[in-house]
């Protein structure tokens, strides 16, 4: 956990001096680069919520809405 936090802080700090202009975002804007799950993955996420104790922190459902996790 500590290592993860250090990594996060390091990446955030390093990134703060970089600005990518709009015209440089061709690759960033590729649909496969989206920082979200694909719509079709909602079904996989759904069964994982039922079959596993953990949920959330993926931009989607965190709990509630079903008699599951």
């Amino acid at each position: 956990m500590k290592k993860v936090l250090i990594l996060i802080v390091a990446i955030t700090t390093l990134s703060s001096c970089v600005v990518v202009k709009e015209y440089q975002k061709v690759n960033i804007n590729d649909p496969d680069m989206a920082l979200t799950a694909n719509k079709i993955e909602k079904f996989e996420t759904n069964f994982q919520i039922y079959r596993e104790g953990a949920s959330g922190a993926n931009g989607g459902k965190t709990g509630g809405g079903c008699g599951c996790n």
């Binding site: 990134s15 920082l35 959330g56 931009g59």
Partner: peptide
């Protein structure tokens, strides 16, 4: 009843990479 608060942060690192953090 379920109550949740979610925070997210994302950052473009280079022309070819980006990351995001989620905290619920």
């Amino acid at each position: 009843n379920s109550y949740s608060v979610s925070l997210s942060f994302s950052q473009i690192l280079t022309k070819n990479s980006q990351f995001s953090l989620f905290f619920d």
